[in-house]
């Protein structure tokens, strides 16, 4: 599974990082640092979906 963040949409709510800071790293200002194309380690898919669902502005999605 690969995931992406739309940096033009992200508002630094930090809710993905609350779900899992390793899968959803934040920069110093709290914006998502997932980048345009991040590989989700095998077995972490459900957590990735939880983190995506936690975004209140839908900036994250599965590629």
């Amino acid at each position: 599974m690969r995931i992406t963040v739309d940096s033009t949409v992200c508002e630094a709510h930090g809710q993905c990082g609350v779900v899992d800071m390793d899968l959803f790293p934040l920069d110093d200002d709290g914006y998502s640092a997932v980048g345009p194309d991040a590989e989700v380690p095998a077995g972490e898919e459900d957590t990735a979906l939880l983190g995506i669902a936690a975004c209140p502005v839908r900036a994250l999605r599965v590629l």
């Binding site: 630094a12 709510h13 930090g14 609350v18 709290g30």
Partner: peptide, 14 residues
């Protein structure tokens, strides 16, 4: 969408 900030925001988000 519902971008409320009841949990705060950013690095200190609850």
């Amino acid at each position: 969408p519902n971008p409320h900030i009841a949990f705060g925001k950013g690095i200190h988000a609850c």
